[in-house]
Write a protein that binds this DNA or RNA. Structure first.
Lengths: 353, 353
DNA sequence: GGATTGAATGGTCTCGTGGCCATCAGTGAA
DNA sequence: TTCACTGATGGCCACGAGACCATTCAATCC
């Protein structure tokens, strides 16, 4: 079991790869005719067609997509840039988009920017190197790649954005109705009697002008409530910062009676903090989480969540992409879909203190 | 906002795409020289090199990988076939493998077989259509694609298997030490005093000869324990069947005092069943789960798990792949890595009944 | 001083497919 | 009979980069 692996003898192997030329030779026709057996079979005599098909079957011929796309035409690959494939939102999005694109003959190439501008640029470069026909992008993480993206567009790469829409962008896009979702959460908590509500998000107006964080104070104000300044901390969107922020919020002299986690990842961090402090849901505090992640219905009590229509979002995004690639048309350039509030056990009226 | 999307005017756009020819023309050298500026810069006069680099920068030239790989050489893409990208094991595997391969200049194309033989064949075809240099495969789901896989190999596609190794396969492979992992779980429970232990797996000897299910009775026997026939039900590996099977096991006259879930997905189904029945862990029953999934440390009590070294597995698999593609060598064709038992709150001595 | 060497650069062909035009045989109408 | 037309098939070139060989020119050696 200690054999050395080395490069396979390419020549020997490649000899077994058959091309349309081989098919043509075996069938006794020209390459052009052989090709037509695949693309325009009705242009051939039934007899010729059968002969070519027989040759194709015998040689197990399968066209080389690289060569096909090289000659002027579009390539059959589409890139998908996600934040992290470990995140169920992105994984589900990738799966659904992949299905829709596969039905139209495209292959999805998934790449992660890992929430880093540098990585994003790197991944966009890689995708362009493969000459993808289009890119489905979750923008906003890598500010620096704006310029590069513009260049890609000018080179005929179709771009569709999802989940976030940067200001001044006019790419076709698919978005969640973030203000509406936040409103649902706040209204739900407000109706239960909560007044001191905090949202775990990022409030930085420039670096990451995240729609949900921006909407939260506005929605609160509309209900006659204010968000104390100490509830609005600028943080990143990951699990650890949500954990830390939750602890900080609960250490305040006037801690919130209800928490809204603006992403599924933050919900996980918040939940961990609550559990470690021995707080009981919903008695000691109420929690609403974005994203209907599997664990939210596994814990006790299950968490009240705002479910994003991930599959619908991916389907619409893929359709927008396909339209740009010349497959079908769509009427709406900018799609906005609503979230669904699923009431479970983590929300209840606040305890009387 | 109701503009119609259609195909971009390809000609206009393509005019903006620059090739090595354009670079050469702008720099006033031949295409060959221009190419050398990228591949063998030390072969050029500093003056010439600078001129070409200036042209490259000005035109934002980036090589077309398709064209490069078409000419005899290997392509720079590698396919990864996973069961489901929603499964954290696969997602983590994909991420790590992607990193390792990217460092060697390869792009990973992820595709899901969704545990279906038909889908797997379809995906393998698609990958071959793109002429990937190699395929990282979780085999065993699609029995039918064996033949196709052999054909791919004979066409020079490198194949590396992970997570499961079908009998009579000699592909380079990376496996978990499944018997050893099962032994760790059983030994742990045995030491706590458990005797009636059940494992959620699939015991079918032909359809899916899964190593873990096969190892379980053997490990039990080695400890002088037997597995009752009614504990060994043939099931699929998904969440719902694990849920149903758990309920069935607990309805038996002599229910197990400890459960081992042989996959992370089955653990989730089992946990759901236990919680719905109001059973308290670890008082009423003990639970050990394969895979250290995020939710297992989020629930109360956290679950005792067998952690797979996913990143190490992916790194080794990617290294095996790279070795076959001629990048570096490895000494071990078949890698087996051990699991780590993480004792948490879901296991304890059985209650005296 | 002519031959030799080697560095620097250029020319040409190839990969597998798609697009376009050419060819050829057969058919029907003027 | 001839011509226009159509259906079936073939020839040729382009796509963009890489491999390999050819060429040029200057420096060096005997």
């Amino acid at each position: 079991m200690t054999n050395r692996l080395s490069a396979p003898p390419a020549l020997t192997y490649n000899a077994a790869v058959s091309t349309i030329q081989d098919v043509a030779r075996l069938a006794g026709v020209s390459p052009t005719t052989a090709k037509r057996a695949l693309k325009e079979p009705d242009k051939l005599t039934p007899d010729t067609l059968a002969r070519v098909q027989q040759a194709i079957a015998q040689l197990h011929y399968e066209p080389d997509q690289r060569a096909g796309s090289l000659r002027g035409g579009q390539s059959t690959t589409v890139g998908l840039v996600v934040g992290s494939i470990l995140e169920p939102f992105f994984a589900q999005f990738a799966r659904t988009a992949s299905h829709v694109l596969a039905d139209a003959g495209y292959t999805l190439i998934i790449s992660e920017n890992e929430y880093s501008a540098q990585r994003e640029l790197q991944e966009l470069r890689r995708l362009y190197g493969l000459r993808v026909a289009g890119i489905l992008l979750r923008p906003g993480y890598g500010q620096d790649s704006q310029e590069y993206l513009a260049r890609l567009r000018s080179r005929g790469v179709a771009v569709t954005e999802y989940d976030y829409r940067p200001p001044h962008h006019d790419e076709p896009s698919v978005m969640l109705d973030n203000p509406g979702a936040v409103r649902q959460a706040v209204t739900h908590l407000h109706a239960l009697g909560h007044r001191r509500i905090a949202a775990l998000g990022t409030y930085h107006p420039v670096i990451h002008p995240e729609e949900r964080s921006r909407a939260f104070p506005e929605v609160m104000n509309a209900l006659g409530l204010t968000v104390p300044a100490e509830y609005q901390r600028v943080t990143l969107l990951n699990e650890d910062t949500a954990y830390a922020l939750t602890n900080d919020l609960l250490d305040l002299p006037e801690p919130p009676t209800a928490l809204i986690a603006l992403t599924g990842t933050q919900a996980s961090g918040a939940y961990r903090a609550l559990r470690e402090r021995g707080m009981r849901l919903p008695h000691d505090i109420s929690l609403v989480a974005f994203d209907n992640y599997p664990w939210t219905s596994l814990v006790d009590p299950p968490i009240t969540v705002l479910e994003q229509p991930v599959e619908a979002m991916a389907e619409r995004a893929a359709a927008l992409m396909l339209a740009q690639l010349g497959h079908g048309t769509v009427t709406q350039r900018h799609v906005v879909l609503g979230a669904r509030l699923i009431e479970r056990g983590s929300t209840a009226p606040p305890a009387r203190s």
